[in-house]
Simulated assay, not measured.
Amino acid sequence: MSLVGRTRREALQVNGALLVLAALSLAPLLWMLSVSLMARGEASHFPPPFLPARATLDSYRELFGSTGIGRNFGNSLLVSLAITVLSLLLNTMAGYAFAKLRFAGRERLFQLLLAALVVPAQVAMLPLFLLMKQLGLVNSFWGVIVPAMASVFGIFLVRQYARSIPDELIEAARIDGAGELRIFFQVVLPLLKPVLVTLATFTFMGAWNDFMWPLIVLTDQEHYTLPVALAALSREHIMDVELMMAGAVVTVLPVLVLFLALQRYYMQGLLLGSVKG
Score class of each variant (00 low, 15 high):
residue 124 A to G: 12
residue 125 M to A: 15
residue 125 M to T: 09
residue 127 P to W: 10
residue 127 P to K: 13
residue 128 L to I: 00
residue 129 F to P: 00
residue 129 F to E: 00
residue 129 F to N: 04
residue 129 F to H: 11
residue 130 L to H: 06
residue 130 L to S: 13
residue 130 L to T: 13
residue 130 L to K: 13
residue 130 L to D: 04
residue 131 L to T: 15
residue 131 L to H: 05
residue 131 L to W: 14
residue 132 M to W: 05
residue 133 K to V: 00
residue 134 Q to M: 13
residue 134 Q to H: 14
residue 135 L to K: 01
residue 135 L to F: 15
residue 137 L to V: 08
residue 137 L to P: 02
residue 137 L to Y: 12
residue 137 L to C: 10
residue 137 L to E: 05
residue 138 V to T: 13
residue 138 V to S: 04
residue 138 V to M: 11
residue 138 V to W: 01
residue 138 V to F: 05
residue 138 V to G: 03
residue 139 N to P: 03
residue 140 S to I: 06
residue 140 S to F: 02
residue 141 F to A: 11
residue 141 F to N: 07
residue 143 G to T: 04
residue 143 G to Y: 09
residue 143 G to L: 08
residue 144 V to M: 13
residue 144 V to R: 05
residue 145 I to W: 05
residue 145 I to S: 02
residue 145 I to H: 10
residue 146 V to Q: 03
residue 146 V to G: 09
residue 147 P to W: 12
residue 147 P to F: 12
residue 148 A to K: 05
residue 148 A to W: 12
residue 148 A to L: 14
residue 148 A to C: 07
residue 148 A to E: 10
residue 149 M to F: 05
residue 149 M to A: 12
residue 149 M to H: 00
residue 149 M to P: 00
residue 149 M to T: 13
residue 150 A to Y: 09
residue 151 S to P: 03
residue 151 S to H: 03
residue 151 S to W: 02
residue 152 V to R: 05
residue 153 F to K: 01
residue 154 G to A: 10
residue 155 I to H: 09
residue 155 I to Q: 07
residue 156 F to M: 12
residue 156 F to S: 11
residue 156 F to C: 11
residue 156 F to I: 08
residue 156 F to G: 03
residue 156 F to Y: 15
residue 157 L to S: 04
residue 157 L to E: 07
residue 158 V to H: 04
residue 158 V to M: 14
residue 158 V to D: 01
residue 158 V to C: 03
residue 158 V to R: 01
residue 159 R to Q: 12
residue 160 Q to Y: 04
residue 160 Q to G: 14
residue 161 Y to D: 03
residue 161 Y to T: 01
residue 162 A to T: 06
residue 162 A to W: 03
residue 162 A to R: 05
residue 164 S to M: 07
residue 164 S to H: 07
